[in-house]
Computed example of a mutant assay.
Amino acid sequence: MTSLTHLDAAGAANMVDVAEKKVTSRVATAEGKISLNAKAMSEVLSQQNKKGDVISVARIAGIMAAKQTSTLIPLCHTLLLSKVKIEFDVQPHNGQILVSSMVKCEGKTGVEMEALTAVSVACLTLFDMCKAVDPNMIISDIKALTKQGGKSGDWQHKNET
């Protein structure tokens, strides 16, 4: 069982020791989407949602979530993030909001989980703020898009060009 990095020799959960790894610049991006009905979309676009500015609140939630990833995901390392950026591509023509994140740090381990957590929580916040108008929203297609830095080098999702 010692070939699995998050299990010790006895098979118990184990946080990977990164003490000997080099500090390098790390960047990761992720995206996801939420599908919502026309009324909910209209409220988002006109900023008429009863709970407030849906996009601004979701952006702050995503940033906060990235900073809290190590408290949410077991065995993740605490990282000193230097940048978290959350963007929203509101697409009223197809009833979707595409949420993307970019997370950066100088560290010994990557920030893919932070980028994914940011997108996930931003989408969940959109859902929470719009659920009174559309309880049938669908959050989907959350995925890591890219990672840069570290020993294993750069990576890009196979469907991204």
Rank of each mutant, 00 (worst) to 15 (best):
T2D: 13
T2M: 10
L4C: 05
A10W: 00
A10F: 01
G11M: 10
N14D: 03
V16I: 13
D17V: 02
T24F: 03
A28P: 00
A30R: 08
E31A: 09
E31Q: 12
K33M: 10
I34M: 09
S35A: 14
S35W: 02
S35H: 10
L36F: 01
N37D: 15
N37W: 03
A38E: 13
V44M: 09
L45K: 12
S46G: 07
N49D: 09
K50P: 07
D53K: 13
I55K: 06
I55V: 14
S56Y: 01
S56H: 02
G62V: 07
G62C: 06
I63V: 13
I63Q: 10
A66M: 10
T69I: 05
T69G: 04
T71Q: 15
H77I: 12
H77W: 08
K83A: 14
K85S: 11
I86R: 05
F88S: 06
Q91K: 15
N94P: 03
G95L: 13
V99F: 04
V99A: 10
S100G: 11
S100A: 14
S101E: 04
M102W: 07
K104M: 14
E106T: 00
G107V: 04
G107L: 12
E114I: 06
L116K: 05
V119A: 08
A122I: 03
C123I: 03
M137V: 08
I139C: 06
D141F: 01
G149H: 04
G150R: 12
K151C: 05
S152H: 12
H157N: 14
